[in-house]
Amino acid sequence: MKNDIKNVLIVGVGGQGVLLASEVLSETAMLVGLDIKKSEVHGMSQRGGVVTSHVKFGTKVYSPIIPYGQADIIVSFEQAEALRSIEWLKKNGLIATSRTRLVPPIASSGKFFYPDDPIAELKTKVSRVIALDADKIALELGNPRLVNILLLGVISGELGFDSTIWNDAIKKRVKPKFVDINLLAFAKGQELAKKSNTVSA
């Protein structure tokens, strides 16, 4: 029973839309009829801290937290945060990350340093990495805030849910006036994933 559970970790920095992405993913799993739990800690996230959302679904889910080494997929909206999160990744798990670079004030203090190329480092450790200039693509689609749904499109093939169900979930969870552009971003993500040979589905 334990084995049919899928674990997806979504990470980013306050304000990047981590929570909306995890809502859309949860809604999709719910429409499919699965049990779901989702966990994140609020409070400090609005002040530039790391935001991490754990989403788990399957026949029966107990704990809302993904244990280390057991995330099937990690979706990251910031490249250094992708690197920070690998402790959760399963062997052969997939990381899809934006190349977004958000350097916090503390890394300008001289005490800490933001790595030069977090994605290169990531690739030395993890075999299945998709890194995208998601900011740029989102901007081309018409809104910088589309990074989250774009990346959901990228990983959607891994989960095997029907595209129409994803679309229904987006319609349900995204504000009406942004639905169309988010559907577009999702489809763009799916298209980009097909071009990448890292995704198995």
Binding site: G48, V50, R84, E121
Partner: peptide, 10 residues
């Protein structure tokens, strides 16, 4: 796990 800079709330 990676030893990275912290990202404290500000």
């Amino acid at each position: 796990p990676e030893q990275l800079f912290p990202r404290p709330p500000v």
